[in-house]
Design a protein around this nucleic acid. Sequence first.
DNA 1: CCGGGTATGTGTGTTCCCGCACAGACGCTC
DNA 2: GAGCGTCTGTGCGGGAACACACATACCCGG
Lengths: 237, 237
Amino acid sequence: MLPRKTIHGVTVNRLLASLPKNEYQRLLPGLKSITLTFGEVLYEPGDTIKHVYFPNDSIVSLLAAMSERSTLEVGMVGNEGMAGLPIFMGVNVSRTRALVQGSGSAMRMTAAAVRHEASRLGALHRLLHRYSHSLLTQASQSSACNRFHSVDARLARWLLMTSDRLGLEEFRLTQEFMSNMLGVRREGVNKAAGALQKDKLIRYSRGTITILDRRRLVASSCDCYAIIKAESDEYLN
Amino acid sequence: MLPRKTIHGVTVNRLLASLPKNEYQRLLPGLKSITLTFGEVLYEPGDTIKHVYFPNDSIVSLLAAMSERSTLEVGMVGNEGMAGLPIFMGVNVSRTRALVQGSGSAMRMTAAAVRHEASRLGALHRLLHRYSHSLLTQASQSSACNRFHSVDARLARWLLMTSDRLGLEEFRLTQEFMSNMLGVRREGVNKAAGALQKDKLIRYSRGTITILDRRRLVASSCDCYAIIKAESDEYLN
DNA sequence: CCGGGTATGTGTGTTCCCGCACAGACGCTC
DNA sequence: GAGCGTCTGTGCGGGAACACACATACCCGG
């Protein structure tokens, strides 16, 4: 686990925390602390984006939805990022579904405030630029990963990414849910999870997943995990 | 075919063509007209980006390279865009391979000039923001497409996207090359291409591909084509 | 403690695509 | 026009993941 900035023991959004104090102070009036609850949908494809979200200890998944049945995660947003990036890019409509994958707190900002802030070349502007690159890299790498790597490896990667963003080794998620993230069937997740459990890398039962051996789990996942992680962590420097 | 801006009959980059005259004039000294030839590699993953490229009638493919054998296209850049976007986002290193997929001309600009231009909030800044969103959408949609759709449909989509950017119904590309773009084996491309040819949607022989029935080829491709195309075309407005 | 809903385990066939192995087929050069 | 390299066609065996179909197992509320 990386060291993480906290206030009163609660993880705070690292993107916001990287802002110089004066700029943060300027943004503060437009920021509102809210709670995101599992399953909540922030945007559907085609929706106008009204707010952006800076997760603290929550996670937002960005999904490409094809048919009603098939969805695939194309981006995962935790305390290193922001959901609602299109607003920053001058686009008001979301092309993905933004789904709360992990309950927790987040800072919310109106689209208008983000647009206003994007019209000046401050620290937030610079950070969001670099975050855009990070998200693009994540999408590209996941794309190739989904194409070439086994369900087992992809599940391992996904669990690690989730654990990193939650800052926990244990969390609750059903196989059904994960199947929607990985773009495979529920039975496929079952098989992959069974294999990981058999190797004592994770334990899970009825929606509760525990990472038992992080190091070996990383080994069993593909390099994609390390590549995406490096890109997500280092852009804040 | 869309109407396309031309100078002396040669297609010009639409992104640059969308700039107001005075801003274009300001950029002009930093732009150099060059020729890109098929197979040329502009950047490898990890390379420092020295120039960005605005294709006129050329095409640049952005590839995620996993093992030496496996590559997958994560973005296609034609006259609607720019290769080297990370520079604009404040990142100097490419995470993808940029490969010239179609010979032709392009405008080249130094990284320093792009950085300088990004430090003012002009028309280019706004356009590149929106282009970033377009590229992110393209990567996301392709990702899901690669996951859920058949090789046949994906090949149809890819041929259409290539044809759009070249502005031609006929072009030269081997099955081997396409297999690297689609992330499948050469034999898989052969089978898919054979199916399309049997249905008289395309004709091909020894590297020369001709689109015979565009309308039905669109029908046989997935919606992904239309979605990506809409996003690529409309951001310039 | 009993039922119903949710979550998980397992099996059987099928399909798509991979890996390998060649066999043609065309085109360029000497 | 002989030879060689590149590109294309095809066939076969195998494996991963699909679709469908159930058989549990656990949890919670009445």
